[in-house]
């Protein structure tokens, strides 16, 4: 049995899948709403964790966190399953589809045939929804795409069993019904407060505002420590995480600003609207960081000390973000 599944494109796959799945059960929330309620904004610079010989910078929490938090705060009961046997994983999927249940799953991007080639690397935490079967092909709602698409049995099985970091092992998840009572305001406040806490209060130098400052000081040392070529690669990688991987621009800062704007109306708190505007300006600064980095990569920077320049820009960003999150930490549900 094929269900009618409304597909909406999103900037980020996890928000998109969450939003599309919830909508199927009758709860219509925008991508920024899901992102905010799921506390999707984050920052970490992890010099000891390298991918392709370059340290990892991330603007979001670990894969799965946004979905898990949003589902919990809105009261959805989510079931998940992993399988050691690929045949069984496909069989279980078929069973769910026969029952008319759309299924979310984690897949590897590298073998996803419909992805543009410059975006295909070994990233295994991509989310999509399978919502039916037609002539042996699976009907796919991939939030990255503008329209639904299809995968053959072989193709789907392959991406479900991609190997390497975060190997999905056939991981699939689904909800069975809409929760009886949804407290949207409460969920929004929880989402905001947790975002502020994780940006301000994680007691390690790599995370949140401390992480941005830490990165700034590392960037300052890049040219002496790594030489010109490698320094440019390291810097470029930061911008790739910021702009390339479905962030909606500026490392999710614009999406978060959109969330604060929506939240200010729902919670009827004008202060959130001002913070949204400030976050937009901070997003513009992140974009400036990307532009300056591109100039460094092209060896066309007009700054006297380009790396000091971008490091200082990061420090400015960190300071302004700190103020925003300190304000957000005080948000309460005053009109329940």
């Amino acid at each position: 049995m094929n269900v009618i599944f409304e597909h909406n494109q999103a900037a980020h796959c996890e928000n998109g899948v969450t939003s599309n799945l919830f909508k199927y059960y009758g709860l219509s929330l925008s991508e920024p709403m899901i992102f905010g309620i799921g506390s999707g904004l984050f920052f970490a610079y992890l010099p000891f964790l390298k991918v392709n010989h370059i340290p990892v910078t991330t603007f979001r929490p670990l894969p799965g966190f946004i979905f898990k938090r949003a589902a919990k705060r809105l009261g959805f009961d989510i079931k998940r399953k992993r399988f050691s046997n690929p045949d069984k994983a496909m069989l279980e999927l078929d069973k769910k589809l026969e029952q008319g249940i759309p299924v979310g799953m984690l897949v590897g991007v590298y073998h996803l045939t419909y992805f543009p080639k410059p975006y295909r690397f070994h990233f295994n935490a991509h989310n999509l929804v399978v919502y039916g079967k037609e002539d042996g092909n699976y009907l796919i709602s991939d939030p990255i795409m503008e329209t639904p698409t299809k995968l053959t049995y072989k193709e789907l099985r392959r991406v479900r069993y991609a190997r390497g970091v975060f190997a999905p092992k056939g991981h699939m998840y689904w909800a069975e019904k809409l929760p009886e009572k949804i407290n949207l305001k409460e969920a929004i406040v929880k989402g905001i407060v947790q975002t502020a806490k994780s940006m301000l209060r994680i007691p390690f130098p790599m995370f949140g505002i401390k992480g941005i400052k830490y990165l700034a000081e590392q960037v300052r040392k890049y040219p002496q420590k790594l030489g010109e070529n490698k320094a440019a690669q390291y810097l470029g990688q930061i911008v790739r995480s910021q702009e390339e991987i479905g962030t909606g621009g500026a490392g999710f800062r614009f999406m978060f600003a959109a969330f604060l704007q929506e939240a200010s109306e729902i919670l009827k708190q004008q202060s959130l609207h001002h913070l949204s505007m400030e976050m937009t300006e901070i997003g513009d600064l992140w974009r400036e960081f990307a532009v300056e980095t591109a100039r460094i990569v092209k060896k066309r920077s007009s700054l006297e000390n380009p790396y000091d320049g971008v490091a200082n820009l990061l420090l400015t960003i960190a300071e302004r973000e700190r103020k925003v999150f300190q304000e957000l930490l005080k948000i309460k549900n005053i009109n329940p």
Binding site: A11, P32, P116, P118, E146, G248, E262, S276
Partner: peptide, 21 residues
């Protein structure tokens, strides 16, 4: 870079200061 396969949604503000993609 996208090989014409799709456009990437960016969040931005419209004439009235409202967020849109």
């Amino acid at each position: 870079m996208l090989e014409g396969k799709f456009k990437e949604p960016c969040y931005a503000i419209d004439e009235n200061g409202k967020y849109t993609t």
